[in-house]
Design a protein around this nucleic acid. Structure first.
Lengths: 236, 236
DNA sequence: GTGGCAGCACTTGTATGTAAGCAGCGTCGA
DNA sequence: TCGACGCTGCTTACATACAAGTGCTGCCAC
């Protein structure tokens, strides 16, 4: 099956840039010249440009015609929007949890949680497991495909979370909450599962808000002006 | 190609194509050659190609490398996904309705409903008003910005609705439901508003399902094969 | 020193050229 | 008759050339 080849140059460039933006390797405000990126990635401007357009639609990049392209600042409003959307979707999915859960999927979720408990877990690996866990919760109710929309909308939220966890180092608590939620689902106690999930997502959000109050400069809202070219400390 | 407009060619082409796909002026399966479109729109292939990539990300167009680009068939799974997402978002918004509603926004919504009652309402105009109404409901709770994500996700749903309304001609009932919902919100009766909205959205969905059973060929799910080139009756 | 202006360097937007792959069709051989 | 095979014309993917606008920079007049 020749599906739109995942190996196309554009796909590679897009995924590379997206990852770098989300992991803050490309920090908010960073300049993204089509020419520079093309040269450094060893491709022409075309796939780079097409990737920047896609990232622009996602809100992760701002393109100023004839001026330049820049990684967008973390926008508190967009973070709140994404939080609202994901909470709405993940909670609504619980309404459609079937009587008997898919055993294979359940095993997958348990294995995932096991890995979250691994000692010395890398931060990026944790995020990966966290994503997979929440996606799995949606799949339990047959709404796994809605996850891609959530993912596309929550770029700003993810960057904010990374900023927060860099500062608080408190991912252990989130892992505990994951266990509690899954246990409630398995026990068929949906009200508890709902409450637990809502509290979990809200806790993440509150964490972000704390970070925002502590380091407001990271969250300066995008008002349409071109970012000033200064370096900002992103972590440490 | 002189554009006195500050809107880029790409934006114009993108919006034109998107509108034509959603209104079924470009029916599912239609071929979208970059060259042909560029010639007929009076631009080069570049903005056309970039627009097709964006529409591809939205799922409205399928691009087969080295083969061709086609308007995607209405995919029942994607319709269901969009229905789930919009219902989740619109219902969750009701949780955040403020005590006192924004008077200007309320007046806007009432004026909108008034127009929905206009005699001999054009179908496309109705869809426009419907969109605006639901967006307005979100804005009442301060979650207006989440609408754009819903819009981006519900392309397949919109096409399915158009197919359904062409066959049933029953938009009057939906207008009544709009009134009922808004009245409940204004009265502060959120449980009724929630129930009414859910029933409303489900009714739309059921309507689509009826159409699907009647005309399954319009909904053939996209399995990765290139559409066969045959003409299908889209309405009438 | 300072204000103003011209020009340059660099940006994205658009157009076009080149590469490479699939599909359909006609031909040719058995 | 029928199947294999290569040609041909189309497609998108990628590279590059050109256009047009922006903002910095440094020179120059005062």
């Amino acid at each position: 099956m020749r599906e739109a080849s995942n190996r196309s140059n554009r796909r590679v460039v897009y995924e590379t840039l997206r990852r770098k933006v989300l992991t803050l390797e490309l920090p908010p405000g960073a300049s993204l010249s089509e020419n520079e990126l093309a040269a450094s990635l060893g491709v022409s401007r075309t796939p780079v440009r097409e990737s920047l357009i896609l990232l622009g639609e996602e809100g992760l990049v701002r393109v100023f015609p004839k001026v330049g392209s820049f990684v967008s600042r973390v926008d508190a409003e967009r973070v709140a929007d994404a939080q609202f959307l994901r909470e709405a979707v993940e909670l609504a999915a619980f309404d459609d949890i079937p009587e008997t859960l898919d055993p294979g999927l359940l095993a997958e979720l348990r294995a995932n949680l096991e890995q979250q408990r691994a000692p010395g877990l890398d931060l990026e690996k944790f995020f990966e497991l966290d994503e997979s866990f929440h996606h799995g919760l949606l799949r339990l109710s047959g709404h796994g495909r809605a996850w891609s929309t959530v993912v596309a909308a929550k770029g700003h939220l993810d960057r904010a979370r990374r900023l927060g966890l860099h500062e608080t180092n408190g991912m252990g608590r989130f892992v505990d909450e994951h266990h509690t939620i899954l246990d409630a689902v398995v026990a068929g106690d949906l009200p508890s599962a709902r409450a637990g999930l809502r509290a979990h997502l809200r806790a993440v959000f509150d964490d972000i808000e704390k970070t925002r109050r502590r380091s407001p400069e990271l969250f300066a809202s995008d008002d349409g002006s071109v970012p000033v070219r200064r370096s900002i400390a992103v972590w440490e």
